[in-house]
Design a protein around this nucleic acid. Sequence first.
RNA 1: GGAGGCGUAGCUCAGCUGGAUAGAGCAUCGCCCUUCUAAGGCGACGGUCACAGGUUCGAAUCCUGUCGCCUUCACCA
Length: 591
Amino acid sequence: MNIKEILHNSIVKAVQELFDTNIENTDFQATRKEFEGDITFVVFSLLRYVKGNPVQIGTQIGDYLVKNITLVSKFNVVKGFLNISLDNSYHLENFYTAFADENFGFKQAETKDATMVEYSSPNTNKPLHLGHVRNNLLGYSVAEIIKAAGKKVYKTQIINDRGIHICKSMLAWERFGNDETPESTGLKGDKLVGNYYVKFDQEYKKEIAELEAKGSNKEEAKKQAPILIEAQKMLQKWETGDKDVVALWKKMNQWVYDGFAITYQEMGVDFDALYYESQTYLLGKEFITEGLKSGVFYKKEDDSVWCDLTKDGLDEKIVLRSDGTAVYMTQDIGTAIQRIKDYPDVNSMVYTVGNEQNYHFKVLFLILKKLGFEWAKNLYHLSYGMVDLPEGKMKSREGTVVDADDLMLEMTNTAREISQELGKLEGYSNEEKESLYNIIGKGALKYYILKVDPKKRILFDPKESIDFNGNTGPFIQYTYARIQSILRKANFDYSKNVTIAELLNKEKSVLKQLAEFPDAIQLAAKNYSPAIIANYTYDLVKEYNSFYQSVPILGCDDLETKIFRTQLSKKVADTIKLAFDLLGIEVPRRM
RNA sequence: GGAGGCGUAGCUCAGCUGGAUAGAGCAUCGCCCUUCUAAGGCGACGGUCACAGGUUCGAAUCCUGUCGCCUUCACCA
């Protein structure tokens, strides 16, 4: 039983004995720093049931608690707040349990059911950019957090390897550079293919301009440009399985996958299951037929199939074209069902997709519910805001995208410059240094993006936004490294338990912060928000740094105190490591 | 026009199921390195929580309306 439950039960009992009234709920909060105490009972919430002066009521309850619970050492009442001080033995016991617990913060998996987390899901016609970076970091981190909260997780993505956009790159490559390969150019495969996508667009624009000069209007010109018509023909050929087109498609897609693999590795993300749109886009059709039978869908005169969601406050949504081909929705319905078939232990899914698709997922989830799938109520759209630049939105056609590979490289370079300026790493081998620049630079980037509430828009200024001070990854990494230094120099056995009679307030506040970590994980899992972990970790580190600065650890005379403080430092470091694992950020042993 | 999201210090962001005097970092200005890593600590300055109502012991938080920014409402994906 945790302390809240103990206090809850006692207060319920106290109210019954003192005021002859039954209550069910009690309202607690952590005591604010300005006041003495550890946990606060809000007496105001009682006034509904018990009439009287809140201060008097609080005092009576406080007296009762001190008399009846040994862990409650004293109390004070301010307005309607009953601040309860817990005995130091409580904090100590809590700490030693945590210190001995290798899996501190992790809840053992109790249930067999699993979650599937989808993220990344890029198109294969251009390289990954800053928007994908946010997506990947969020998806990966949420998957890790859900794991920590006690559930099995499969990470997955659906790769959009089909469609007119791929054909555009293929066509441009055939026409303008058919002897170029990643090997011959030294370019990453995704970059090479991306270049041809841009090339296509340039040609397309040129042709539109020519047509317009000949007197066509803009709309016509857009549809009639020869290069576009050719791309459409190519898509048709692909759909009929034309050997040459498919071979080219396979070749160029493979280049892109090889390129993506490097980027994913650099980012530190991975997947347990891959789905390809080319293999899944037809899957939904049979369920459309079933939905037609059961009346979930209906057919219009032209044979297109729709779902009427007007009763749910939404619109009508098309689920199958009049020519019988699949739309986006058809495919997503099929993919969801397929995933449950492939992984029978999965009973919930998380889709990490930008907020411009909020409506799409609302509709998708609703349709799956209407089709009668039990798991459809456990679907969650992890929706996140755009990443904008100071100049405005990123536009691939205008060359204002921030490339994922370039960005990570730039961060590493920034870390190098700052480290050299500070002269922190003298005496390290070049290999060690490079590894550190990498850890620090990536840490800065990942932390910067993850600390922001997913649903909020991020304003990303590549020049100034990444800082190494304050609420940043490097600041936390630095604290971790400093603690490792303490542990290296602690040439005594700090693993044995000691009991120190008096805890300083500084130590106590670090202990309290530590104790809340498991709750932070549960909260983050519930809200699908790595930001909670990030900000929690920052608070812990701030608290610790303030402690570190004001009380000596190795320097103090008393061995017991020395041991205890070293243990405390170690536990803080372990917790940082754990939190950063959940965020997908590495931690350095030295800095 | 319908639907959804956001609006907190000059800037970037926290603020958990409604609770005490709204918190950090950056920037600006003061202190603190003979102390385990100063990428640090302590302090000052900085707020009409977009605006107006409502709900109640109590609202940045919940409800309604207004304004501003963003997204979405395709036989595109």
